[in-house]
């Protein structure tokens, strides 16, 4: 590898990452701008954040988003983990079928999925609100949990399970005392992932929100449609910080678990 090629590589990658992060950084930067226009920088202020905390509608939307995200992550963790463990025991053919079916919600474009759920839930006369939001969000969160837990399950030393079986442990006992503790960190990381995905969803939530249950991203979207204000910047920045906190926590747990691994 000659030096010129190496320099070009560094240059190209740097240019790419500048382009990738400049839009994000400018949103953050201008949330602190005194002027309400992006035309010039008028000085540092926290005013827009203050306004945000006094906004009742945003607080309400935030509350709903958090409630939905927490319920979604618990539900997805249970279903996703159960599916991954069940998939260990079924026939090869069935496992393949489960793998395929799990990808289905991720393959249908979100608008089409949202519309179909809207039509389905209205036909069932389900009230639109928390219930529909949690059901629909868990639909596309479960596959992620499933995949992450499965990755971990593949790492398990099967001789341990065989030994337990030989010593007379029932299947349920093996699952409870060996498998679940081993995959617990993955389940936790995956639930945090589900939490973050649910908190960020716009498209499906647009159709699943009831009149009194607008989620935060749906509200942010309607704010953005009206126009650019630093208040939106401030809100986006806070959401970013919150998400990074959640994801960072997940990574930390994962790292710790991997370090503890002795076998």
């Amino acid at each position: 590898m000659n030096a010129r090629a190496g320099r070009f590589r560094t240059f190209y990658l740097s240019l790419f990452f500048v382009a990738l992060y400049v839009p994000v950084l400018s949103v953050i930067l201008y949330s602190f701008n005194e002027s309400s226009s992006t035309a010039h920088w008028a000085g540092f202020t926290l005013n827009w954040y203050r306004q945000l905390f006094n906004d009742r509608v945003i607080a309400e939307a935030f509350k709903i988003s958090i409630q939905v995200a927490v319920l979604t992550s618990v539900l997805s963790a249970i279903i996703g983990t159960a599916t991954a463990i069940i998939a260990m025991y079924v026939t090869k053919k069935m496992k393949k079928a489960i793998n395929g079916i799990m990808l289905l919600p991720l393959l249908v474009p979100e608008v089409a999925l949202g519309i179909s759920l809207l039509i389905f839930f209205s036909a069932l006369k389900l009230p639109f609100g928390h219930l529909t939001l949690v059901l629909s969000h868990s639909l596309f969160c479960v596959p992620y949990v499933y995949i992450m837990v499965q990755l971990r399950l593949n790492d398990i030393d099967f001789s341990i399970l065989e030994a337990a079986k030989d010593l007379g442990a029932a299947r349920w006992q093996i699952i409870r005392t060996i498998i679940l503790p081993l995959v617990a960190p993955s389940i936790l990381t995956a639930s945090l992932l589900a939490l973050a995905i649910s908190l960020d969803d716009v498209i499906i939530s647009t159709y699943m929100s009831g009149a009194a249950s607008t989620t935060l991203p749906v509200h942010v979207f309607s704010m953005m449609r009206v126009g650019v204000t630093p208040k939106v910047n401030a809100l986006c920045t806070l959401i970013l910080v919150g998400t990074f906190f959640i994801v960072g926590l997940g990574q930390l747990i994962n790292k710790k678990a991997n370090k503890k691994e002795a076998f």
């Binding site: 994000v24 949103v27 201008y30 960020d200 953005m224 650019v228 910047n233 970013l240 998400t243």
Partner: peptide
């Protein structure tokens, strides 16, 4: 990073 934020960045 919220997809709305990333879109909004381009408006800015």
């Amino acid at each position: 990073i919220s997809s709305l934020l990333r879109t909004y960045g381009w408006i800015i």
